[in-house]
Write a protein that binds this DNA or RNA. Structure first.
Lengths: 249, 249
DNA sequence: CGGGTCATTAAGTATAGACAATTAGTGCTC
DNA sequence: GAGCACTAATTGTCTATACTTAATGACCCG
């Protein structure tokens, strides 16, 4: 009878409940049938129902309380989610032709400010790379990157003439911790010139630091000319799968 | 022997594996012990081990393949996560005193642009609210909000003289879908005056539309003076629990 | 009426076993 | 040597059961 013919039973149960909740049929606070009731409805064992409910609880859609039952959770405040992608991928998805241009590359020792920003010692070796990413032959973003040679010794041998450092690093060193800061600045003359905009134009700046195994890998400052809208995220409060919700709506 | 005395066994197993992965001990591609091996190591049933591994797979830390085994996953590209919080809460957390000021409130019918932006019909009733949020007596963000009267009829009776519309809505209407856009703009004269900054100063603009049960609830434009750094997120690629990782490190 | 005790309910955890599905590898056949 | 069938390893799903833990509400006693 059910369209989800080959889907595992616990998935079916989970989706049925998810639909009822996300559609708004069951408001926050609404009581979800108990494990026993669902056992009856789906003619299955309690462990199967439990798995479905536990997954929903893990994703934050329901709250479970002993003796009381399971209830539809109130969506998490206005805490929400955005995504930042790899730049060539990001541009490629928009359909515009992508071009990369290396502006500068310099091996140097960390100064005081850099050492502090990266959490390393002054004098440690760094590779500073400046590059432009073009979308349809217009500058899309300016990339200023510092790479920690101690963590990524191979970088010393890479010219970055063809491959953007971000993509190069992705394929080489994974990250397991990262930190972002986003703010707006008025473009200063050098950046404005590279981005082909008037000095003073508002730009969106994303700063990201990335660690692996406790050691800093890289710090990058991405400067996007304002105006063009940017950083779009669409999502549901189902934690753990932002953005991929609209199927089957 | 293990410090996690009262923790359920499956959690213990999960954490042990998580630690090995996030610390970098096990690199991406590393083979995680099979369910049988873990069964032996922890002297427990397969279902218990399976639960631990399934949770890790759901959070994206490991990949599981039949006949092959479980492997440490490569972290998801540079796809990452940020959080935006309720404004009074956000300011309150910084320790600075918070103040709210209503600038304008007007009931009106949707024009062409508004109708399109909100996905409603021209002529539908809207409540437009303009307000300022102060942090330590300095303007922190300008809020321009449209509320769909059809979805939130109560808004018609609320003055918003004391309660910010965002917080008011949160307590009344949950959301189950939202959409963001972030960009940078040069402040125009009216906004600049309200925010007490020079016209042309770079500002970060967050636009958010929120739906519940398929109907639009509200659209809000938040204008933050640039400079002050903003939108900070720290996270691990463990999906589903961004930010709360650093415990016990 | 107040307060404590106890039974009940529902979820939380865990076990042991079964069969299905997938697929890497092995060895056999042609 | 190429292709094929078989084997076995490993995860995927599900069952039936059991005991534990938390919390609610009812009952009893002072």
């Amino acid at each position: 009878m059910r369209a989800t013919a080959t889907l595992p039973l616990y998935q079916t149960i989970k989706q049925d409940l998810e639909r009822a909740i996300l559609s708004g049929d069951w408001r926050p606070g609404h009581r979800v049938p108990s494990e026993h009731e669902l056992m009856g409805q789906y003619s299955c064992s309690r462990m199967t129902v439990n798995k479905a409910l536990s997954l929903l609880a893990a994703s934050g859609l329901v709250l479970r309380r002993r003796r009381s039952g399971s209830f539809v959770a109130a969506p998490a405040a206005e805490e929400t989610v955005l995504e930042l992608h790899d730049i060539p991928t990001e541009i490629g998805k928009s359909g515009a032709p992508y071009r990369y241009e290396l502006v500068g590359r310099k091996l140097k020792r960390a100064g005081l400010g850099e050492a502090e920003r990266l959490g390393i010692e002054t004098g440690d070796w760094l590779l500073a790379v400046t590059a432009l990413h073009f979308s349809a032959e217009r500058p899309h973003v300016l990339e200023n990157r510092l790479i920690n040679i101690a963590t990524v010794p191979d970088a010393r041998l890479e010219s970055f003439a063809e491959t953007p450092p971000g993509s190069w690093l992705l394929g080489r060193i994974p990250w397991n911790e990262a930190e972002h800061q986003i703010h707006a600045v008025n473009a200063k003359a050098p950046a404005a010139k590279l981005l082909a905009i008037a000095p003073g134009t508002a730009c969106l700046v994303v700063e990201r630091r990335t660690w692996y195994a406790g050691k800093i890998v890289t710090q990058v400052t991405l400067t996007y000319p304002g105006g063009a809208h940017f950083l779009v995220g669409r999502f549901s409060p189902v934690r753990g799968r932002a953005g991929d919700l609209r199927a089957d709506g």
